[in-house]
Design a protein around this nucleic acid. Structure first.
Lengths: 300, 300
DNA sequence: ACCTGGCATAACCGAAAGTTGTAGATGCCC
DNA sequence: GGGCATCTACAACTTTCGGTTATGCCAGGT
């Protein structure tokens, strides 16, 4: 089975047409036609029924599809990886972080870094944690920053600092005196709240805590990112639990922020490949992130 | 990345030499040399250091290796699968079973089947359960027979019959009167026994039961197949717990067989692809296996 | 010093994969 | 139903790629 045939099969399956497949592969339609016939001849069975001038996958083709697509994906990953080996040695600082941290922490740290290292170049991106691990192992990026536990056999995660889970509420909810002291979890009983759709360990832990409150909070809207929660809270949709970085951005006029009384800490991690020796630029960047994060989370 | 390069890389990595790789791929050494250079040129980094006329993988090559090997494996699986699509329609009965069942159950059933369908052809093989699932999904075989739970998203397992776990012992261990009635688990306390190395659910369940007996049986020898256990017991190495099919073969002169008093049943499963419609020949075979198994397990 | 084993280079060759051009079938729209 | 757009299939030609044989070079072992 030539690789060409596999790519062609995949292209035909996705475009549902031979001409479409040919375009996808940047070859002419007759070339695709001939290759498909060769593939079928070599395999010994037909992949597509020719019915009224169109191609319809046979039963066998449908059974092959998942395996072929997996191979294509793995192959693509391999290409991504090799592409990153060939990069020049004048390496930019490549950092990816979760959307939450992209709001201020990472840009601020980058700005500070460029004051110390004016010649340094950086590539910043945001990814959710699964893609972050992928991207790190494929060497598309060198440092990941996340609030979630991203354990992976090829990666190491270094805790940078810890903070408390925060409750955000529409303005005027609490008096200045109340704001200073942590809110007991039981105070959330029966409250209307915005739910954070759980993908991460933090979210699921929070949810299990909330569910044990009696009566449980009323969650009618679930959101995927903390920013969305923030915006909804500002509109008076209820309370929400968020990480302290998101909370610290909430302008005092828009939402009120108060720590939650919970032994559970939010941890900021730097993630990088086990085999990679961090260079001074990278070390410095991580140190800046650590300091900034501590400032942000410190009272005041 | 051409597939050729991937195969070549893999071949060089496994043989540690370019000439070896060339032999593996059935091409001449210069062809391999040129292809390797092309691959490196296209990738933009070197895969092997040429040191004193030999090839030594670079750091990058070592990092690529696992991914490349995975792709090679998947590709190989795909080929196995397509090879089985092209088979002629005059299908033989393709059955695979665990070694235990290959002792008498499957051959006996096949013999009976050939009396009813003299023209039928059959392909029998033995595989352990993981390979059995692989082989079924790759359509190398159509029916699997096993005593283990082989759940798999693409496969269906049909229980054919149930039997009791049996204890086998060297001859003369029990009186004919004792033999008839089940042995309580507690009677195994402190006994020298042959352990069945657990890969299957049955084995691990048995082990956990045994470990709860006080004092636990002394297991000094672990074996992987029931036949081995049988042979060791015959030599007086201790008792062993085996499935009823293995037990029923033990010649009375060699080992004594006695049921174990346990609510746990051994189940014989037929496994086949969810999407496959069994033909009459296959149905008949399964029915024969069911009947034979019931006879074997019935008292007497 | 000599042979052996292993990689690289050169010149050459054939088959595979791509191109353009064209033909036939189907479906759509007026 | 005529005409048009679309899609697949076939033919002839060209180029590129993967392969061969022959040969040279270098390092190690005897």
């Amino acid at each position: 089975m030539r690789l060409r045939y596999i790519e062609l099969f995949h292209a035909v399956m996705t475009t549902n047409s031979l001409t479409g497949a040919a375009n996808l592969l940047n070859i002419s339609q007759p070339a695709a036609s001939k290759a498909l016939q060769q593939a079928e001849h070599q395999l010994g069975f037909t992949l597509f029924h020719r019915v009224r001038g169109r191609l319809h996958p046979t039963e066998q083709a449908l059974l092959l599809r998942p395996r072929v697509e997996k191979i294509i994906r793995d192959l693509h990953d391999l290409q991504r990886l090799t592409a990153n080996f060939a990069r020049p040695e004048s390496e930019p600082l490549r950092v990816t972080c979760t959307p939450t941290l992209a709001q201020s922490l990472v840009p601020d740290a980058t700005t500070l870094l460029r004051k110390a290292w004016p010649a340094a170049t950086a590539e910043l991106s945001t990814r959710h944690s699964a893609e972050m691990c992928e991207s790190l192992t494929l060497r598309e990026t060198d440092i990941g920053l996340t609030l979630q536990d991203a354990s992976h056999p090829e990666l190491r995660q270094e805790p940078l600092c810890q903070g408390r889970v925060m409750v955000i509420a529409p303005p005027g909810r609490w008096s200045p005196a109340e704001l200073a002291q942590p809110l007991p979890v039981t105070a959330l009983a029966g409250e209307p709240m915005i739910g954070i759709a759980v993908q991460d360990a933090l979210g699921s832990l929070l949810q299990s805590h909330l569910m044990h409150v009696d009566p449980p909070p009323q969650i009618s809207v679930w959101v995927q990112t903390y920013q969305l929660a923030c915006a909804l809270v500002a509109q008076g949709a209820g309370l929400a639990l968020v990480d302290p970085f998101t909370a610290s951005q909430g302008d005092g006029d828009v939402v009120q922020t108060r720590p939650l009384a919970l032994e559970l800490d939010v941890v900021l991690y730097a993630v990088y490949r086990l085999d990679s020796q961090l260079n001074p630029l990278q070390e410095h960047f991580i140190e800046l992130v650590r300091q900034l994060a501590r400032q942000t989370l410190a009272p005041g």
